[in-house]
Simulated scan of single mutants.
Amino acid sequence: MTMTTACAPVRGDEAMTQEWLLSLKTPCYVLDPTVVMARYADLRERLGTPLIVSLKANPNLDLLIRCGHAFIDGVELASQGELDIVAGRINTPKYVNNPSMDEDFMRAALASRCTFIIDSLEQAQRLIRVIGKQTAPQTVLRINAGQLVNSGKHPADHFGMSRHDALLTAVALAQANVPIIGLHTFAGSNSFHVDDKGADAAALAHALAAFAPQIARFTGMLVEFLNVGGGFSEHFSGQAQTFDAYRQRIAPLQKDFKVVHESGRGVFAGAGTFVTRVRSVKALGERYVAVCDGGLSHNFLLAKTESMLKHYAQPRLLRRQQSPVDAPLLPIQFVGSTCSRADVIGWNHGLSAPPSVGDLVIFENCGAYNQTYSVGAFLSQSPAHTYIHQS
């Protein structure tokens, strides 16, 4: 990844900010640590619980250096690479969570005093072998959300254990004197909602709490920590009533349990912008096609290739110059720099004057997963640059 760190002028001076944007090397991501910290604090307050940050949403080191101190309840790490990023930089709790965790990752996590989120009996047995005579770490058992609330409303993913396997895993860890401090579950991205049908986020939390005494009977230790995941949208600020109802629903659990949540998308999404530059413009059919220097190789999620119905983002256009006054007004299709027909990254379906070569195409809400979930090796494209914008 090409890393470039820069500080933009404060946003209050729009002309200076636009001048700075036009000077950037594109394609690029612009990340704002002040927005990350504000979103973290906002979401944590709405939940009324501790909030663990899922670093896989945005493991950018320059960003972490500037805002990692705000993650007071800890971070969740899904790879040894992410652990290496936070080692020596994050003093709050670290949770490692990956079903394929190998022995090297386990040893590194042990050295960093991480809490292990256990996905299977086999993984627990592997951890016991790696521990040997070392001090045992704290562990949390992950329960499959679909198995936990068997209503058909939660996706049948492959993460976590059935109740039966969780009990077997509890026995194995207890016999090896490995402490189990809690339980974990997660229903998937954008799954946070409250309803009266028995399969919402609050029902998941109550089901996890109801299972905790069964684990305690096998280990002889109380289970007092419940990580009920998150699934928060990047637009969580528009769900005030949902959060109010959710807090009321989980309040009884907080008498006996430390209920915590996780978030990656909710914390990082609104703190990142993807910026690409128009390299060519043509009229084709009843639209303008703006060919950009950045596309699915740099921001795979914008191409919507994993969506049945493609609702493309509508970017903001920062023009370097005025369009010809006599140019017809047409919709604009924004495409990337590869030879793939799927490399369509945005649309402006309203009638507009054509963009010009050198104009910037700016996509908001690209701070979570957009950069790391992209297929950078296609056509040997150079990676996107990254800038830090300090508000």
Rank of each mutant, 00 (worst) to 15 (best):
I215K: 04
L167Q: 07
A384F: 03
L31M: 10
C292L: 13
V223W: 07
Q18K: 14
Q322M: 15
E122K: 10
M3I: 12
Q314L: 05
A205M: 07
P213A: 03
Y95H: 04
D32F: 05
D32P: 08
A70N: 09
V171A: 03
G346W: 01
G231Y: 09
H193P: 13
V223I: 13
Y29R: 01
D165N: 15
H193V: 06
A216V: 05
L47W: 09
K153Y: 14
G229M: 13
P137E: 15
Q239H: 15
P355A: 00
A124G: 14
A251D: 09
D104N: 13
G346H: 03
A8N: 13
T273C: 07
A209N: 06
D256F: 11
G152Y: 02
S233W: 08
K197A: 13
T139A: 11
G238I: 00
F363L: 00
L43E: 08
Q123D: 00
R44T: 11
S100T: 07
N177F: 13
G132S: 02
R320N: 10
C292D: 02
Y373V: 07
N299P: 02
V281N: 01
A111W: 09
P179A: 13
K282Y: 11
Y29N: 00
P324F: 15
N144L: 02
H298K: 02
D293S: 07
A145P: 11
F268T: 00
L31V: 07
R89S: 03
A124F: 12
V289I: 15
V178T: 04
G81F: 08
I117V: 11
A166V: 08
G160Q: 01
L309R: 05
Q322P: 11
G346L: 03
A6V: 05
P354F: 02
S79D: 07
I362Q: 02
S189R: 10
K133F: 13
G81S: 04
D293F: 10
T372Y: 09
V75S: 12
M1P: 14
F116H: 06
V53R: 02
P315D: 01
A313C: 08
L51G: 08
N91F: 14
A203E: 11
S237T: 11
F116R: 00
I131V: 15
N365Q: 12
I215N: 05
V259N: 03
R142F: 12
S189N: 08
R163K: 14
P354I: 00
A207H: 06
R320V: 13
G48W: 10
K94N: 01
L121H: 06
A124W: 12
P315I: 01
G238P: 12
R265E: 12
H154Y: 09
V86N: 01
L167F: 06
V130F: 11
Q147S: 10
Q175E: 12
L168N: 05
I250K: 04
A145I: 00
K56R: 07
H298G: 00
C292K: 01
A368I: 05
R44H: 10
R287C: 11
D102P: 06
M37I: 12
Y387N: 02
A187T: 07
H193N: 08
A303W: 04
F268G: 04
T139G: 10
N60A: 04
T276A: 06
G230V: 03
L296K: 05
H235P: 06
